[in-house]
């Protein structure tokens, strides 16, 4: 009994230690930014690696999600004679929820896992240690640019996701199922509010961007420097990242619709 209690206590302390370490890393990334002349090109490189290279998966998935949404929505709305509301249905669900959430989950799988694996491998092959011994701080040189790269990329990817999903819905709804284009767009325009819907969606994506990239860089930085250690760190990034996004989405939605 005592042994089990001790084990539970040990696990608890270990978890708290991890949170503490993650907090310190976050603090260092935020308050010791790389200097502008050297740091800017590194951040641009990361925006390319994490953002531009994620474009394919974001564009293709958003197009299909928009198309499926229009197909499902149209048939349900048509039962009530409300198929002209297809535009608002698609736009609101994409801009408020699907855009930020699905982009963040795809981002955790595509870019987050790559960041974790890269940092973990740099640690395993003594690249981070050798950088430290060359008096170059790996947090500023390696961790911070990857964090800021993800932070910048996520809202941009979300905007692209939103636009492509709505375009996908337009293709199915208007071009295929025959909803009038004028009704589709004008109903959408009158129902979607810029601040309450679009801006709040982007705000969500910024929070998700911080959460996913923070998890990704932290998991890479503390990865056990073996092949199994890096594999499990990568998995943890995707699992924790996706769960954090879904949990935060609930909290943010509750805050934004004023129920909290």
């Amino acid at each position: 009994m005592i042994a089990r209690l001790a084990l539970a206590g040990h696990a608890g302390i270990e978890t708290l230690r991890q949170f503490g370490k993650a907090g310190i890393l976050f603090y260092e990334v935020l308050f010791y930014p790389p200097n502008l002349r050297k740091g800017f090109p590194l951040v641009v490189q990361q925006v390319y690696a994490e953002g531009v290279l994620s474009l394919l998966i974001i564009v293709v998935s958003s197009l299909f999600i928009g198309m499926v949404l229009a197909l499902q929505g149209y048939h349900t709305l048509a039962k009530f004679g409300a198929s002209q509301e297809l535009g608002p249905l698609v736009a609101l669900s994409v801009v408020r929820e699907l855009g930020p959430v699905v982009t963040a989950i795809l981002f955790a799988g595509r870019a987050g896992s790559a960041v974790t694996a890269e940092i973990g491998l740099m640690k395993a092959t003594e690249q981070l240690s050798s950088m430290e011994m060359m008096a170059v701080d790996p947090i500023r040189r390696v961790i911070a640019p990857r964090f800021w790269g993800g932070f910048i990329s996520m809202p941009l990817l979300t905007i692209i996701f939103n636009a492509m999903a709505i375009y996908g819905a337009y293709l199915v709804g208007v071009k295929w199922l025959g909803v009038d284009a004028g009704i589709f767009w004008s109903n959408m325009q009158s129902s979607v509010e810029f601040h309450a819907d679009v801006v709040n969606g982007i705000l969500k994506s910024i929070v998700f961007g911080v959460a996913v990239t923070w998890i990704a860089v932290f998991q890479g930085y503390i990865a056990v420097p073996t092949s199994a250690g890096i594999a499990s760190a990568t998995t943890r990034t995707v699992v924790y990242g996706s769960l954090a996004v879904l949990g935060l989405d609930f909290v943010l939605t509750a805050m934004m619709i004023g129920e909290w």
């Binding site: 491998l121 092959t125 690249q127 240690s129 050798s130 011994m133």
Partner: peptide, 22 residues
């Protein structure tokens, strides 16, 4: 932190695996 990094500029270390940036 700052002084430690200043001092490290005066040291070199050859790691067992090399530690080259891949």
């Amino acid at each position: 932190h700052k002084k430690l990094y200043q001092l490290r500029k005066r040291m070199g270390m050859l790691f067992q695996q090399g530690g080259l940036f891949t």
